[in-house]
Nucleic acid binder design. Sequence first.
DNA 1: GAGAATGCGGACCGGTGGTCCGCTTGGCTG
DNA 2: CAGCCAAGCGGACCACCGGTCCGCATTCTC
Lengths: 195, 195
Amino acid sequence: MAERKAARADALRNREAVLAAADELFARSESPRGVSMDDVAAAAGVGKGTLFRRFGDRTGLIGAVFESRIEPLRAAVEAGPAPLGPAAPPRERVPAVLDALLRFKLDNRHLSLALEEAGSGSPYQAAHYAWWHGILRDALSRLPGRGDDADFTAHALLAATRADLVEHLAGVEGMSPRGMRDRLAAFVDTVLGRV
Amino acid sequence: MAERKAARADALRNREAVLAAADELFARSESPRGVSMDDVAAAAGVGKGTLFRRFGDRTGLIGAVFESRIEPLRAAVEAGPAPLGPAAPPRERVPAVLDALLRFKLDNRHLSLALEEAGSGSPYQAAHYAWWHGILRDALSRLPGRGDDADFTAHALLAATRADLVEHLAGVEGMSPRGMRDRLAAFVDTVLGRV
DNA sequence: GAGAATGCGGACCGGTGGTCCGCTTGGCTG
DNA sequence: CAGCCAAGCGGACCACCGGTCCGCATTCTC
């Protein structure tokens, strides 16, 4: 859609300042809950009203920050080359997509955590989730012999990459990123059937 | 451990009243977040101070309610007969335990949801989780050819039964309890290797 | 029945997400 | 450059939450 009006310059500046400040605050903080909207507003040098008018509510802000981070990966999956893109054969694409998603969550642990507990506390309400699930479901349904289960299998595979699980494995259990990626890959192989 | 003193009669009565009130409030409410500690205190006909002295904090209260509900299942898994109990062969016990756990969450959707988002928002901090994970890990490690992956596999299987996923499938996707149990069983079979 | 200890309850507190409205600022117009 | 108007701003303000605290009522003991 075309924009209705030319946006004011300061509005744009503020938007960027808020995104940058929120990104950094979430990255630094131990828990997403330790970052309040007041904190973000203060760090961005902006009033609270501005923040809420721009992003609606806390969930909207987190969603916007997350979106700005994950956009490249999303584009690669949506229209990039194999193995992530749509041209890749499903048996290769599914593990590739899951590994890429896990890598992203490892690189953006706190932000991913924040996103998944935003919005009534359920990741399943984020538009984001439905998109990834759709990608996986479609790929899985193209695999031989698993028509009906594609939907649930996609959910189950995504559940194995949830941000709080990643956080738990990396934190409490001290698992390395490499180790986690290997475990996930092995698990996915088991589910898809080793070849 | 033996109790240090005889508990006062009114204290016991209040404890029961609070557990019953909380159980009902969580069951009724749409989201666990809609139930405040004031609500519970009011519904139980008890002061807020009582509530916090008894249970420490919100997480403690939810944990106590949950524990009182799940205790029978826990006992069955810990010391009951096959297929849930420890005597069952792992290949049968793992699916049986997961199905029982899923059934419990289906029967106690809101309470399970409340528990899993209590305590910093991560289910992995609940003592409860570590226990189930231990059961599954041990059973899996007794299966041939999957030594190292037992830990991660246990996490991944449990992730497929998470309360918010159950809630999403039952609510938004309109999946029936029977359907969900069948899907989970099929998924578990795939992971363990069909026989 | 008296005394001590145990438990009770609700006023109170700091902090949160979210709203509101008087004022500032930026951009168009002549 | 001056003037105008609306888009945008900011922070005081609000309702509510989890959690604390302490004067007071209840229960148990002898």
